[in-house]
């Protein structure tokens, strides 16, 4: 139980995918202009991360490892994740039109998202069990959501302010992102201190 809590906390805060590991930066900068689209994107990421892990973990442990071809990991994972996302989209369109309307447009964007591939690969590297992998993916997704949520708020403030010309647009956004990232770096060590003492 303590392990599981630790994994989730670490994934959300200390090892935040966007702000500490710097994965999934493109949607982080691209879709964070508006809060509702940021939330839609993040929810889709949580969803896809968990499903992708559920699909890739068995592949690694049942196909790649027994055959001793672990180096094919990246290729196969990309293939499987892309197919999976496509399937989800088709399935969603038919069965859950409302959800498809809100998440659908973000799903194809996630297909080639480095954060999704990253979480699958890191789950294997960390040697997590299947359940722990799913927890880690869920936590990572929530971490992504948290980062998007915070940054969408920051950006709405940035957009309405005046900056000197060199800082306008992407520059001020990147500066704000790095400051947010710095603040998340502060969480490193927190997990060990909290759970180490328990």
């Amino acid at each position: 139980m303590k392990d599981m809590l630790m994994i989730i906390m670490a994934a959300v805060l200390a090892n935040n995918y966007v702000l500490v590991r710097f994965l999934g930066i493109c949607p982080f900068l691209g879709v964070s202009k508006k809060l509702d689209s940021a939330m839609g994107m993040s929810l889709a990421v949580v969803f896809v991360m968990v499903l992708a892990t559920a699909a890739t973990w068995p592949i690694q442990h049942l196909i790649l490892d027994p055959l001793g071809i672990g180096y094919m990991q990246t290729t196969l994972f990309i293939l499987v994740i892309a197919a999976l996302v496509q399937m989800i989209e088709v399935f969603m369109k038919k069965s859950m039109p409302a959800l498809h309307k809100s998440l659908g447009i973000y799903l194809p964007l996630i297909t080639t998202n480095c954060a999704v591939l990253g979480v699958c690969v890191l789950n294997i590297d960390e040697g997590y069990s299947f359940v722990n992998s799913l927890l880690n993916s869920f936590g990572s997704g929530v971490g992504f959501l948290l980062a998007m949520f915070l940054f969408a708020g920051v950006r709405s403030k940035i957009e309405t302010n005046e900056y000197p010309k060199p800082f306008q647009g992407v520059a001020s956004t990147l500066v704000a992102a790095s400051i947010l990232s710095l603040s998340f770096m502060g969480f490193s060590g927190m997990i060990d201190n909290i759970f180490g003492g328990m």
């Binding site: 592949i59 196909i63 790649l64 055959l67 071809i69 180096y71 094919m72 290729t75 196969l76 293939l79 499987v80 197919a83 496509q86 399937m87 088709v90 399935f91 369109k93 038919k94 069965s95």
Partner: peptide, 27 residues
Amino acid sequence: IIPVAVVVAVGFVCAVLLTFIGNKFAV
């Protein structure tokens, strides 16, 4: 042969599944 076969097999399974789902859930 093994890695190639694995990728081909996985790709084939994905393709079959996608086609099947595409037909089954076509809107």
